[in-house]
Amino acid sequence: MNGVFSAFTGVLDSLLPAASPLLLASLGALVSEHAGVLAVFMDGAINFGGFVCIAVTGATGSPLAGVAAAIALTVLLLFAVSRFTERTGANPFLTALSVNLLSSGATSLSSSALFGTRGTVALADFSGLDLRLWYFPASLAAAAAVSFFLQRTLAGISLRAAGSAPEALAARGGDPGKYRTLSWCIAAFFAACAGSMLTLDLGAWVPNVSAGRGWTALAAVYLGYKNPWLCAAAVLAFAGAEYATNILQGLGRMPATIILGLPYALALVVFALVPQRKQ
């Protein structure tokens, strides 16, 4: 009995921290979806945030500065892209996609310029943060905050209106564009947190460190019916599936390269089967 229990807590110990970046990312995507501009840039923004975090942590020696810089720069980037999108009437889907492409170009360029490599950048003598225990509670607290924001604040209500009926919001004197920008800034904030969590946990930046989490996060939004708490449940299901495949890989039953495709395949199944907002 004791053995079963400890095995169970063992699973939870590795599952919950692993699920946390995904949960943060899906909360960001959720807010953007409510504003009607799904953040398809999540994957790129996570990578970008993760890179900035490692670069600044490496330079200053302070992970706190790293996280702060990651948040500041990612939010600034998406703020700029969103303002540009609004000002020029561009297609937000395309400009969001461009963030993914620019992120991969920019991180490889800066990595090569700053560290002379396009591969892994490890922090020298970094012992990691002893915060793993707090990842999941913190992410749940974030889910609570997002839920409160969307349901109980006037800005949250306006943001939802910006997504489903922008003309109605405009008629009440609200600026839908402003709320769309806000939603992308919030998404960028969560992406940066998720990216920092991933890289600080590894103590290194690895190209494409998000490994498709930005896309799985989008799937979790729909699987969770756009509700923060259900999203958290969906994320746990995803993390469980990932955990299982990791075990399969460990047993040598599945080639490592194919595992890279699994998050996408899983997200694909969700998108195919869960009803979505009409595009």
Binding site: L94, S98, L102, R118
Partner: peptide
């Protein structure tokens, strides 16, 4: 570096 990605990114950003 990955110049293609940057070219594509810039195009997607400005095209619409």
């Amino acid at each position: 570096f990955d110049s293609t990605a940057i070219v594509q990114g810039v195009i997607f950003l400005f095209i619409s």
